[in-house]
Design a binder for these strands. Structure first.
Lengths: 284, 284
DNA sequence: TCAAAAGTGTTCTTAGTACACCCATGT
DNA sequence: ACATGGGTGTACTAAGAACACTTTTGA
C-alpha cells in the first residue's frame, strides 16, 4: 500500500495468505425491506376524489419461527454481494421493479432478536411509485400482500400501528423511551402477529419517512409522473398524520413542481391541473 | 407463539433444535467509532480567547493490512453482545468514558472494503465532552491519537478533510456523487494514509454532525457543564464551517440554555456569563 | 488607553399560519 | 342547482439575516 510497508518483515500479500477468517464466531447478517407505496381507492360518490392510503408490503411466513405471522421481505446477505445489493436484490424479487428509491434505515443488532441464532439485520426503507406496482405472485407457498398502514400517537410516548390487507388486521404497539439509546429507543409493547422485531423496524421506517418528508423531496418517489396538487397534499397529510391548509401547502411546494398543460378530467368537479416534479434534493 | 402454530406438524421448539446455523456462509461484522471532541488551545495574546477545534480519535495500525496507517477505533462484534454494546465496549476501551453520546451512523457493506475477508461494519458516531477526556495509554504497540480535523468544500462535489495530530498530517479527499445510491454516494478520491474505507466513514460522520447540529441538541454533548455563549457559538461555527452573527445566534439558542450566576474571569476583556444546557431533544 | 470580547437593540426580509373567497365541473 | 374540489388573495405572526452600537475587562 505505502512504501514504508514494504520494509516490514512480512508483506501485506503474505499476511493475507496466512489470515484465518474463521478465527471469530460470526453472527449472520440479513437485510429487511420496509417497502412503502401509496394506492388510491375509488369512492362511491362520483364527485369525490379517490381515497389515498399508505401501504406496506409484508410476507406471510411459511416456516418456523413465527410461522403464519407476517414479516418484512428480506433475506441473508450473500458473501459476494454488498449489503445494498442484497437489499436491492430482495426488493426486486418481491416487487419486480427497477424504478424505486431505497435508503438504509438502521442496523438492528440485539442479541435475542431472532430465536434461531444470532442475526444482525440491516433494514432499508423503499418507496415505490403506485403506477409501477406489478406484484409478483406469491412464491414458495408464502403469501405476499400489501397492507394499508394507519397509525396514531398516544399520550405517553405510545404509538399504535394498524395494518390491514382486507383479510387480516395487524395491530402493533410501540413505545418511545428517551432514556434508552439507539435501537432500544423504541420498544415493542404489542407485536400483533408481526414476526421478529419487525414492528419496531416498521416504527423506525415510519418515523424516518415522517421526518424526511419535511426537509427532502422523498415524496417524489411515491408519486406518479403526473399528479394534481391535491393528490400531492394528501400524500403529505397521510404521512404527517395531520391536515394541511391548501393555500399554504401550495406556496410551500411551488418550487418543487412544474406546471404542465395536462388536466385531470373524470371528476364531478372542476378539472385539476397536473404537475411534475422538477428536481431532486440530496439526502444523506 | 400463537395458538395456531401448535397445530402444525412440528413445534417451534422442535424446529429450533434441528436448525443448522452453519447453512449460510457468513460475513464478519465489526463496529467502527468516529469519536469527536472539542479541545481548546491557549493563544499567545492575553486578550484573545483560546482557540477551539474539532478533534477526532484515530489509532495507528500495528498490523497488516494497512500497517502504519491510521484507522478508526473498532473491532469485531462478539456473538453474545448487541452491535450497540459492541460499539460501546470498544469506545470505553479507547476512551475510558461513561458520559458520552453515541449514535449509529451507517452500515458499510461493500464487498471489497476489507482486503482480508468479507467484513460488514456498522459505524457509530460518538461525541464526548472535553472536560471528560482521559485518554488511555496506547495499547498493544499501536498508538492512539487525537487529530485536529478541518475540512473544506470545493466546487464540484469534492470535499477535503485534513487531520493533524501535531506529528502527522493526513489529507483525505472525498467526492459526492448524487447519481449513486447509499454507501457509494460518497467516494474516496484520496485516502491519505487512512486505513480501509475509513475516510469515507469520517466523511459520513462529518455530514451527519453538520446536519444534526442544526435541528437537534447534539452540541450539548461536546460542551462542558458550564460554558460561555461565545464558546458555544464557536463550536457551531467549527462544525458548520461558517461564521455566525452573534446577536442572531444568541436569539436562536436562548431557549436551550439557562443563565447561571457564574462568570468566566481570567481574560483581558469583559467577563462572560456562564450558561448550562437545560433540556434534551429527541433525535431519531 | 485600548484591543478583545461581552452583550443588546433596530430594521428589513422571509417563511409560516389562518382564513376567506371565487371558479368549474358532471350529474 | 349543488356538492365537491380547484385555485387565489389577504392579513397577521414568527423566524431569520444584517448591522450598529455600548459595556467591561487586564495589562
Amino acid at each position: 500500500m505505502k512504501a514504508e510497508e514494504e520494509k516490514k518483515h512480512i508483506s501485506e500479500e503474505e499476511f493475507l495468505k496466512n489470515y484465518d477468517p474463521s478465527e471469530f464466531e460470526r453472527p449472520s447478517v440479513t437485510v429487511d425491506n420496509v417497502i412503502f407505496s401509496i394506492f388510491e381507492t375509488k369512492t362511491g360518490n362520483y364527485r369525490k376524489n379517490p381515497e389515498q392510503n399508505l401501504y406496506l408490503l409484508l410476507i406471510k411466513r411459511g416456516e418456523h419461527p413465527f410461522i403464519n405471522n407476517w414479516a418484512l421481505p428480506g433475506g441473508f446477505v450473500r458473501i459476494n454481494e454488498s449489503v445494498e445489493e442484497s437489499a436491492y436484490r430482495e426488493l426486486k424479487e418481491e416487487t419486480n421493479l427497477d424504478d424505486l428509491y431505497m435508503e438504509q434505515l438502521y442496523t438492528f443488532g440485539n442479541v435475542e432478536r431472532d430465536p434461531r441464532m444470532r442475526i444482525i439485520s440491516t433494514a432499508y426503507m423503499a418507496l415505490i411509485k403506485p403506477e409501477n406496482i406489478e406484484l409478483k405472485a406469491a412464491t414458495d407457498a408464502s403469501a405476499v400482500s400489501w397492507f394499508k398502514l394507519t397509525y396514531e400517537f398516544l399520550d405517553n410516548g405510545k404509538f399504535n400501528i394498524k395494518l390491514d390487507n382486507g383479510e387480516t388486521v395487524l395491530n402493533a404497539g410501540l413505545i418511545f423511551d428517551n432514556e434508552e439509546r439507539g435501537e432500544n429507543r423504541i420498544k415493542i409493547a404489542e407485536s400483533g402477529e408481526l414476526a421478529f422485531d419487525h414492528a419496531k423496524i416498521i416504527g423506525y421506517a415510519l418515523m424516518r419517512l415522517r421526518n424526511k418528508i419535511e426537509y427532502t423531496n422523498l415524496v417524489f418517489n411515491l408519486m406518479p409522473e403526473y399528479f394534481t396538487l391535491t393528490e400531492l397534499q394528501k400524500v403529505y397529510e397521510i404521512i404527517l398524520g395531520k391536515e394541511l391548509i391548501k393555500a399554504n401547502f401550495r406556496r410551500k411546494i411551488k418550487d418543487l413542481v412544474t406546471e404542465t398543460e395536462k388536466f385531470s378530467d373524470e371528476a364531478g368537479h372542476r378539472p385539476s391541473r397536473l404537475f411534475k416534479f422538477n428536481s431532486k434534493v440530496s439526502d444523506i
